[in-house]
């Protein structure tokens, strides 16, 4: 059902865990499958220096979280916020049609985490 790249990211997911005192956190859920994803960001000077995730979900969701966190590390928040689920799927070399929404969770969680960072920053000024 899943290709090797997906399985690799599922078997050895990168960036699992939480960040203490994160600069941004995004938590999203999918109502139809009940799965939940959280992404934690460490941001310095609008550059993402670290990203971690926690996911309650299928293998595609775990692989997407792993891939998405790898993609955004080192990127500026402006670049990272533009990352789409399509890019995540491309990097994973494809997901089964029924598992597309799992990658959407990753896109949404990143966006929320960055917005969370921005709003915190705004209120600190």
């Amino acid at each position: 059902m899943y290709n090797d790249k997906v399985m690799e990211n599922f078997k050895n997911p990168q960036n699992v865990g939480e960040i203490e005192n994160p600069d941004g956190v995004g938590r999203v859920g999918n109502a139809s499958c009940g799965d939940i994803m959280e992404i934690y960001l460490k941001i310095d000077d609008d550059i993402i220096t670290d990203a971690k995730f926690k996911t309650f979900g299928c293998a595609a969701a775990i692989a997407s979280s792993s891939m998405a966190t790898q993609l955004i590390k080192g990127k500026s928040i402006d670049e990272a916020i533009k990352i789409t689920n399509k890019q995540v799927i491309e990097e994973l070399e494809g997901l089964p049609p029924k598992k597309i929404h799992c990658s959407v969770l990753a896109e949404e969680a990143i966006k929320l985490a960055i917005e969370n960072y921005k709003s915190k920053k705004a209120s600190n000024i």
Binding site: P13, V16, G26, E38, T55, I62, N116
Partner: peptide, 17 residues
């Protein structure tokens, strides 16, 4: 479970959203 956000919550760790 170590990967699950639900488990962390249950352990009483706050989520700073």
């Amino acid at each position: 479970r170590a990967m699950s956000p639900l488990f962390a919550q249950q352990k009483g760790e706050p989520i700073n959203v």
